[in-house]
Amino acid sequence: MGSSATPQLRAVLFDRDGTLVVDVPYNGDPGLVQPMPGAKDVLDLLRRQGLATGVLSNQSGVARGILTTEDVASVNARVDELLGPFDVWEVCPHSEEDGCGCRKPAPGMLHSACRKLGIRTSEAALIGDIGSDVRAAEAAGARGVLVPTPVTRAEEVSESRLVAQTLALAVDLLMGDA
């Protein structure tokens, strides 16, 4: 098979809101953080298998003046307390209008996370609940898995190569794909 073989998976990265924790729009209150069903078990399994874990999160509320970077950091600290420790965190504080290279679906946060982990993007996967998560993974050369929620659009599901109904099934898909 040579270079066409799928590289070994070394890290699984996650979208935060709607994937790891229940989505509370523009959440700046750590007290509102509630893990998604099965998230802790999936993360514990990945860590036992020696895989790095991380979080990549668009937080446009900062650019819009709805949240401060301190608000985001306090919510992230609560996520880390409940589901961590994570090996890497990446946050994009920009809005869509800023045209940055980090906001998903751009691959910037994934590239940065992989640099920090010392791995190639082809050795990473990103699990998220919307199409921009999967598109960011694909743009970076990583594997993307969509775990739809009620806010996921039908076209995002149909456009995604890997779709799973739960985080556990998403990891199963990745392990079968590895």
Rank of each mutant, 00 (worst) to 15 (best):
D133T: 01
P25W: 01
H111L: 15
T152Q: 05
T149W: 10
V134H: 05
R64E: 14
V21S: 01
V134M: 05
A63H: 07
Q165N: 14
L43Q: 09
R10F: 01
P25S: 07
V151E: 14
T68P: 05
G31H: 03
S122F: 07
V72T: 08
G176W: 11
L174H: 12
S60G: 15
G99R: 11
N27F: 02
G28Y: 07
P37S: 04
A39R: 03
G108Q: 03
V62D: 10
L117H: 07
L45E: 15
A5Q: 14
A142D: 04
T68M: 07
D41I: 10
V72P: 07
V21D: 05
D172Q: 15
A11D: 07
V91H: 01
D15G: 09
D41M: 10
D17M: 04
E138C: 01
M36Y: 08
M175Y: 12
A170P: 11
W89H: 14
P148F: 03
A168I: 04
I127F: 03
R10K: 14
P150H: 11
N76E: 11
R64V: 10
E96H: 15
V22A: 12
E155A: 13
K116Y: 02
T19W: 00
D98V: 06
T68F: 05
N27Y: 00
M109S: 00
C102D: 10
V171P: 08
D15I: 03
V72N: 08
A140M: 11
N58L: 12
S158Q: 14
C100G: 06
G31M: 03
S57G: 02
S4C: 03
L46F: 03
G84W: 02
P93A: 02
I130K: 14
I119A: 04
L56W: 02
S158M: 10
D80G: 09
A63R: 10
G128E: 03
F14H: 02
V22Q: 09
R161I: 13
D15P: 05
C92H: 05
I66Q: 13
G2R: 14
P85I: 00
D133N: 00
E70H: 13
A39G: 04
R10L: 10
G28H: 05
G31L: 09
M175S: 14
C114N: 04
R47F: 11
S122C: 14
L67Q: 07
R47L: 08
V134G: 02
R47P: 10
P148K: 09
R16G: 08
P85V: 00
A137G: 01
L162N: 05
D15V: 00
P30I: 08
P7K: 06
L83E: 01
D41E: 15
R64A: 14
A140W: 08
G54Y: 12
G131P: 08
M109T: 01
L162V: 12
H94E: 09
L43C: 06
A124D: 08
G101F: 09
T69F: 09
A124W: 06
T166G: 06
G131R: 07
L56E: 00
V24W: 02
L56N: 01
R120E: 15
A168N: 08
